[in-house]
Amino acid sequence: MTTPHDGPLPVISLEDLGLTYPGPPPVTALHPLELRIEKGEFVIVVGPSGSGKSSLLNVLGLLDNPTRGVYRLNGVDTSTVDDTRRAALRGREIGFVFQAFHLLPHRTAQENVELAMVYQRIPRRIRRQRAAAVLARVGLADRAHAMPTQLSGGQRQRVAIARALVAEPALLLCDEPTGNLDSETAASILDLLDRLHAEGMTILVITHDRHVAERGRRTLTIRDGVLSESARAHVAAP
Rank of each mutant, 00 (worst) to 15 (best):
L103S: 07
V70C: 07
V138R: 07
R128K: 14
R130E: 11
Q99D: 06
N58F: 08
I44R: 13
R86A: 03
N74V: 10
Y71C: 05
G95D: 11
T108F: 01
P123G: 04
D82G: 14
Q129E: 15
V76E: 11
N112C: 03
S49P: 06
A146D: 12
R143N: 12
R128E: 12
A109V: 08
V113K: 03
S55T: 14
S49A: 12
L135H: 07
N112Q: 08
S49L: 06
L135K: 11
T108I: 03
V70K: 10
Y119C: 09
S51Q: 08
G40S: 05
F42G: 09
Q99A: 03
V43G: 03
P48F: 08
T84P: 00
D82F: 01
F101E: 11
Y119W: 10
D83C: 00
K53I: 14
D82Y: 02
L73I: 08
Q155W: 06
G69W: 01
A116R: 07
G139W: 09
G61W: 02
D77Q: 00
S51D: 11
H102G: 04
T78V: 00
M147L: 14
Q129V: 11
R72F: 04
P105V: 07
L135P: 14
R92M: 05
G61Q: 08
T108V: 01
G95C: 08
Q120D: 15
R90A: 00
L33N: 03
R72M: 01
N74H: 05
R85P: 01
P66L: 00
V46E: 14
R36M: 05
V134E: 05
L89T: 10
D64M: 05
E38N: 11
R128S: 08
Q129G: 02
R156M: 15
R85Q: 11
Y119D: 14
A141L: 10
P48G: 15
Q120A: 15
S55C: 08
V45N: 05
L89Y: 01
V138N: 07
Q157S: 05
L57D: 10
L56E: 11
G75L: 03
R68Q: 15
N65H: 14
I44K: 09
S55Y: 06
V113G: 03
G52C: 07
V76R: 06
